[in-house]
């Protein structure tokens, strides 16, 4: 029974590997597509980062076993994510407070 479960896990890991490779190809191809968002590359950035987030989710959920972890790990990740988002939004807050001042 245990070895059956492990065999299923192994198949899943290789499927995730194939999916990650496919997503990598998609990310590279997205560079050459003109998403035409008001003459900027905002569309490309959105698509590229969305694929990166999906790939990150695949690695964390499957390879780092976040699909089956103890509550303590989820708490650590949650607190980290909150501070990480604050850190990422500091430049946005910084920029918005400067607008119109100089």
């Amino acid at each position: 029974m245990v070895s059956d479960n492990i065999s299923k896990q192994v198949i899943k890991y290789w499927k995730i590997f194939a999916l990650l490779l496919f997503c990598t190809v998609l990310t590279v191809l997205a560079v050459y597509v003109d998403f035409d968002v008001e003459g900027s590359i905002a569309g490309g950035i959105f698509i590229g980062l969305t694929i990166a987030v999906f790939k990150g989710y695949l690695v964390a959920y499957n390879f780092m076993h976040l699909n089956d972890e103890k509550p303590m790990v989820y708490w650590i990740i949650l607190v980290t994510l909150v501070f990480f988002l604050i850190l990422l939004f500091i430049p946005v807050i910084w920029e918005s407070t400067l607008v119109g001042k100089y």
């Binding site: 650590i76 607190v79 980290t80 994510l81 501070f83 850190l87 990422l88 430049p91 946005v92």
Partner: peptide
């Protein structure tokens, strides 16, 4: 996991700098 949390903040600081410099 605690170590990785500190690593997220380490790289997070650099990604934050990237956003600030790129936006400017």
């Amino acid at each position: 996991w605690l170590f990785l949390a500190s690593e997220v903040m380490l790289f997070g600081g650099l990604f934050s700098s990237y956003i600030l410099l790129r936006a400017g």
